[in-house]
């Protein structure tokens, strides 16, 4: 098995890493970046939430959505991935393993979401509530994928021998936010979807 082709290390918005001219990567700027990103992402989902509330009110065509049960399993997977990432942060020796595990769990989560979409497609065709379901979950999944590429990047840097937990912490912050965001979306879709 060849491992020569390492994934290219993009600088995703998810986990920004300072690479300024000769500036040590240990500045707190990565974390600041993630906090700003969290602000913007929150705003995006707030806008979609208000759109959902407006669209759902007085709409004769709004049917309550029966969420696929798989979503709850996906939720557990995502929460579990947050836990593995946190373990790595507390025990630096296990950090590389934690990163890999978290990435895999993140991948499982996204796969689970895709399967849930397919289940929903067979259950219900069209309908505004399912349209919102697809938009919200797809946008969330895209952000999770961005976070995964960030995790891969942090893992890659560790392999390159850079001993710094700043990007790790920034990545964890983002990843935990993804979990919180998902819990929020699940609640929203259960109550109003």
């Amino acid at each position: 098995m060849t491992t020569a082709l390492a994934p290219p290390p993009p600088a995703p918005p998810a986990v920004p890493v300072a690479t300024g001219l000769g500036r040590p990567a240990s500045s707190r700027v990565a974390e600041t970046g993630v906090w700003i990103g969290i602000g913007a992402i929150s705003m995006t989902f707030a806008a979609l939430t208000s759109a959902l509330v407006v669209r759902a009110s007085d709409a004769p065509d709004w049917h309550h959505l029966h969420l696929p049960a798989l979503l709850y399993i996906n939720t557990l997977v995502l929460l579990g991935s947050s836990l593995t990432l946190e373990t790595g942060r507390r025990h630096p020796g296990r950090a590389p393993l934690a990163l890999s595990l978290t990435t895999i769990l993140g991948g499982l989560f996204v796969m689970g979401q895709v399967i849930a979409w397919r289940q929903l497609m067979t259950q219900e065709i069209g309908g505004p509530s399912s349209a919102f379901f697809y938009v919200l979950t797809a946008l969330h999944a895209a952000h999770v994928l961005g976070g995964m590429s960030g995790l891969v990047y942090v893992r890659h840097r560790m392999r390159a021998g850079v001993v710094s937990f700043v990007p790790y912490n920034a990545a964890s912050l983002y990843w935990h936010f993804m979990a919180v965001l998902w819990l929020y979306l699940l609640t929203l879709l259960t109550l109003r979807g």
Partner: peptide, 12 residues
């Protein structure tokens, strides 16, 4: 400063 906080994101 010598550059933006995230030069590659800036370029993107």
């Amino acid at each position: 400063a010598e550059d933006m906080a995230f030069p590659r994101i800036n370029m993107m």
